[in-house]
Amino acid sequence: MMGPLRSTRKTDSPRLSLSRVFLGVWSRAGAAFALLKKFLLLDLLEGLRVTFKAQHPSKIYTEQYPAERPAVAERYRGAPRLNNHPETNQTLCIACDLCAIACPENLIVVGSVRNPATRRKELTTFTYDLSRCMFCGLCEDACPVDALELTQDFELASYTREGLIWDRQMLEEGPRPVRYSS
């Protein structure tokens, strides 16, 4: 196997040389070295160097949300949206009900009427219960016409449970969260 477990460091980086120098000098007096190492707090100083290295302002990693809104990924699965055709502004949804069938939580209800002239189903209502949604993306995968889509909006909080049940209008317009930044 891999030999006894001591440190699992792959390389001895030059940054670690402080204790290595002492090791070289004191190699014939291991016990004395251990005592000195303990006395000089070398083990703790090694760690402290890592801590101080991370103090530089260029190393700041924290996102300043909500002052700065993070850019989420293109494929992010956030608030659902019902897309309209960009030119005609008519809904793309063909009321096929595939999203409602695909949904594990049964939270999509599609209402439609059959147009006697064209003999096609036309969308009337669309209800999406966000309070039970787990954003698995199965509904948008099922949609054959890219009408239903999970978007990059992620601020979905609501003061009421009813506020999380989105109707067709809400789904087409998208959420309007309070913005604390431009």
Binding site: A54, A73, R75, Y76, R77
Partner: peptide, 28 residues
């Protein structure tokens, strides 16, 4: 201290997940 460093690196992994499938934690 290690918590902050560990979560910093974990964030890099979660960003890869987010870019790949659109979710960070419950990825599906």
């Amino acid at each position: 201290t290690p918590l902050f460093y560990c979560l910093r690196e974990r964030e890099e992994v979660l960003k890869i997940f987010e870019n790949y499938c659109g979710a960070r934690l419950t990825t599906h």
